[in-house]
Amino acid sequence: MSAIVEVKNLKKYFKTGKGVLHAVDGLTFGIEAGETLGVVGESGCGKSTLGRTILHLLDNTGGQIFFQGRDITRVNKKQLRELREDMQIIFQDPYASLNPRMSISETIAEPMVIQGKLGKAEIEKRVFQLMDTVGLARRLLNSYPHELDGGRRQRIGIARALALSPKFVVCDEPVSALDVSIQAQIINLMLDLQENLGLTYLFITHDLSVVRYISQNILVMYLGQMVEHCGADRLFEAPLHPYTKALLSAIPEPDIHRKKNRIILKGELASPINPKPGCRFAPRCLYAREACFQKGPELREVEPGHVVACHFAEEIQKEENG
C-alpha cells in the first residue's frame, strides 16, 4: 500500500503583530488512494490551513509534502499548474466561493480554459457531462449563482473541482453551510463520485457525525497539532486522547434514550500565537499532571494504526476501565 498524499513534519506559521501563530505545527500522516481522511477539530485548530498548505494555496513554513511519491514541497509555477490538475479543493461557503458575475457554464469551464488543453467544443461537452455528474439540470447552464439555492451552488463548486479530473480533493467543510436534508443529498453525491471516479478525499469538518459517516481514517487536531489519528470506527469506539473523549461526548445525539456522560471541558481554546512548551491541551485537560506542562507529548503508536499524543493515554484508559 502506498499513500497518494503524504506529509512529514508539515508546518505553517503566520507572522502576526503579537508573535508567530503556529497554525499547523509538525503534522505527519499519509492518505491511501481512494480513501477519505477526515480532519476534525474546533475553530482555529488549523484544519483549513492544513488543507490549503497541502495544495500550495499557502506556502509551507517547514516539512515535506509528497504526492504519488514525488516531493512537491517546493514547486515552480509551471509545476504547480500541472499539480492543480491532480489536486483540487471544494470550499465551505458556496455563497462566497463562486464569482457572482460568472454564469454556471463559465464557472465550471474556467479551470479547463486556464489549463488550455481542450478546444471550445470539447470544453462545452465536458461542462454538460460534469453538470450531469453532479446532478445539475442542463437548463441552468446560463444561470448565475444568485439565482440558485445553497445545495445547487455547492454542486457547482463540486463540478468545478472535478473539471480537470483530479485524483485528490480537499473538501473544506463542504456541507456545513447547508440545511440537513440538502447536506445529506450532497454527502451522498460525494460518496457516489468517490466510488465512480476513485477520488481520494481530505475531508475537513467540525461535524463529528458527518466525519464518521464519510471517512475511513480520522485525524483529530488541537491548536495546530495532531492529537490522535486512527481508523474512524476505532476512534469512536475507543478514543484514547482526553480531548477526543471530550469532543465525542459533546456530540448531541438524536436519540432520547441514550443518556451519556458528558465531559464538559473547562475553558476555551488557548491562543496559537507563541504557544508555551508542554502539551497544548493540558490547561483544559481533566487528567493533566505536572509533567504535561513541562514537556509536550510525542506522537506514539499505541496499537497498530492508532497514533496518539498523550503521555498518559494508557494509564487513563486503565483507570477508566478499572
Binding site: V180, S181, I182, N188, R212, Y213, E253
Partner: peptide, 24 residues
C-alpha cells in the same frame, strides 16, 4: 422521517443517507 433519514449516525452504520428529495 426524511429529517431523521438525513442524519449520519454517530453510532456508525454505513447505510446510505435517505434524505428528502427536492427543495423546500
Amino acid at each position: 422521517i426524511g429529517l431523521f433519514g438525513s442524519l449520519p449516525s454517530v453510532a456508525g452504520q454505513k447505510r446510505r443517507l435517505t434524505p428528502v428529495a427536492g427543495l423546500t
